[in-house]
Amino acid sequence: MHGPASPGWLLVALCAATGAYCLLRMRSTIEEQRHAAGGEALMGFGMAAMAVPAAVFTPPSWAWPAYAVVFGAAALRALWAARADAHHLHHLVGTSAMVYMAVVMAASPGHHQGHGGAGLPAVTGALLLYFAGYVLLSGVRLLPAGAGTVAGGWGDRPELARACRLSMGIGMVAMLLTL
């Protein structure tokens, strides 16, 4: 993505740590946790890979279309899962945003020189509004969760899952701002 290297590395670390925790959540005894955690791990690691500062690593030309295909498949899976559970609509928006960013990066000739406004302003703006709202709502939802009891192991703690989703929302806002 565009932007200075230091914030980029912080975003990489945040997203990679979130993806790692989501992998841990995949070992949960709660089936709902396991199913959600796989898609969230993919998002976390995918966001980390896309956020590596361009000054450090310039991906090959095939990487952006590959991201679009992977996240397009994840979007189709989220669309299918949304038939039974509305929570998957958020996953659909997230994976679609990743497809959008990958397509913009692939279509931008010189996208590693740090220019702004490469995406369609209306789509980028709508995604920014959605994820900013999601971050604010997730932050509010997280506040009362700290007063509860710890349920099970690390993979079964709902307040940590909400914190990871909040982190990925913040990361998505940061990535869209640099687009």
Score class of each variant (00 low, 15 high):
Ala54Ser: 12
Leu179Asp: 02
Glu31Ser: 15
Val52Asn: 07
Ala86Ser: 13
Thr124Val: 14
Gly116Phe: 02
Gly169Arg: 00
Ala48Phe: 03
Leu89Pro: 07
Gly146Val: 13
Arg27His: 09
Met98Asp: 02
Ala5Pro: 00
Leu136Gln: 00
Ala16Glu: 02
Ala41Gly: 05
Leu42Ala: 13
Leu42Val: 14
Met43Gly: 03
Ala41Val: 08
Trp9Cys: 08
Leu23Met: 11
Met105Tyr: 01
Trp154Leu: 15
Ala37Thr: 05
Trp64Met: 14
Ser96Leu: 14
Ala132Val: 12
Met175Trp: 00
Val99Arg: 15
His91Met: 09
Gly116Glu: 05
Gly38Asp: 01
Pro65Met: 10
Val70Thr: 08
Gly125Ala: 11
Gly114Ala: 14
Leu177Asp: 00
Ala106Thr: 03
Gln113Glu: 06
Asp156Tyr: 07
Val104Arg: 04
Gly8Cys: 05
Val52Ser: 08
Ala82His: 10
Leu179Trp: 01
Ala81Thr: 08
Pro59Cys: 07
Ala132Asn: 02
His87Arg: 15
Ala126Asn: 06
Val69Met: 12
Val69Ala: 15
Val103Ile: 13
Gly169His: 01
Ala68Arg: 10
Gly153Ile: 04
Arg77Pro: 00
Val123His: 09
Leu166Trp: 05
Met172Gln: 04
Ala118Ser: 10
Leu143Cys: 12
Gly38Ala: 13
Asp85Thr: 14
Leu76Cys: 14
Gly155Met: 06
Ser108Ala: 15
Ala102Trp: 01
Ser61Thr: 12
Ala36Cys: 08
His112Trp: 05
His35Lys: 15
Ser6Asn: 05
Pro109Gln: 06
